[in-house]
Write a protein that binds this DNA or RNA. Sequence first.
DNA 1: ATCCAATTTAGATTTAGTCTCAATTAAATG
DNA 2: CATTTAATTGAGACTAAATCTAAATTGGAT
Lengths: 148, 148
Amino acid sequence: MKTQTDMPNRFTSFLEDRGLKLTYERRYLFEKVSRLKGHFNADSLYESLQRDKARIARGTVYRTIPLLLESGVIQKSVGEGKREFFESQTGKEHHDHLVCLKCHKVIEFHSDEIEKFQDQICEKYDFEMVFHDHRMYGHCGSCKEKKK
Amino acid sequence: MKTQTDMPNRFTSFLEDRGLKLTYERRYLFEKVSRLKGHFNADSLYESLQRDKARIARGTVYRTIPLLLESGVIQKSVGEGKREFFESQTGKEHHDHLVCLKCHKVIEFHSDEIEKFQDQICEKYDFEMVFHDHRMYGHCGSCKEKKK
DNA sequence: ATCCAATTTAGATTTAGTCTCAATTAAATG
DNA sequence: CATTTAATTGAGACTAAATCTAAATTGGAT
C-alpha cells in the first residue's frame, strides 16, 4: 500500500544487500514500474520512458528488469504471446488466474483457504514467500459448451 | 477413416475439433514432446529433431508449439532465462514449485488440500481445468540466512 | 574534492522468431 | 483409388528482440 520514494524499500534494500549502486536509472525504473497497473514487457517499458523524455537506454532497461524480478518488485505474468510479460507487485490486490485455453479469457479468483495452505507449505520447506503465481488452464463455461 | 493405428488423444481430438489436419510433422512433434521429461524450448526441440534426422523445419516447430499449448499437451514452465520454456503434461506426476529469487533453486511440492480447493474454485466458475501451474517465489532457507 | 569500480549510453552485433511463396500433402469427394 | 483443393510445410529471407562493446559517466567510499 505504501510506496515511499525516499524511504528504504524492497528494491533499495535489495541493491544494498548485493552491494549494487542506487543509480538514477534504477530508481527511476523502480518508481515507474511501481506505478504501472497493467502488464508490460521490456519494450513497452522502454517506450513509456521515451514518452517521459527520460533518457534511459534500452540496454539499461534490459539489465534492470532481472534486478526488479529478483527483488520481487515485479513478477513474470500471464503471457499470452511469445514475449515475457511482467507486472508490478506493489500495492496490488492479490489475485490468481483461470485461463481459457480456447478463447484466452482470463478469470481472476482469490481463495483464502489456498493462501493458508500455501503458507503451511512455505513453513514446511523453510521458504520465505515474496509473491506467488497460481494459474489454472482449461476451458471456460462457454467454450466447454461449444465443444459439443 | 483414420489411417493411423494410434488411439485418439488430447492432441488429435483437438486438431479434429478445430478442423486442422493431422500431418506427419504434427504427429511427430506430439509424440516427441510426450516423451520428453525435462524442460525444453523451441530451439532445443528443433535440435533434438535434427539429431533424430527428422527433417522438420524450424518454422513448423514454431507453428506447432501454440497448438500443443492450446491442447494442453505442454505448458509454459518455470522460465529462468529470457526464453519461453515448456514441459510436457503427459503422464507426469503432478507437482508445483517454490522458486528461490536469489539462487534460482526450485523446490517441488504437492498439496492435496490445495488441489481440493482448486477444484472448488473451478466448480464455482464453471471452469474445466486441464492443468495448472502454481509457483511461489521467495527466498529458500539458505538464502534467507545469508541475507544477514 | 578525488578516485575508482560500477554503471550507463549508443549503436553494432547476435540471436530468436516470423513471414513468404512455391511445393507438397491430408482428406473430402465421386 | 484417382481427382481435387485448401491446408500445411520447407527453405531461406526478413524482422524483431536481446545482448554486447568500448568509451563516457557516475555513485559513493575515502
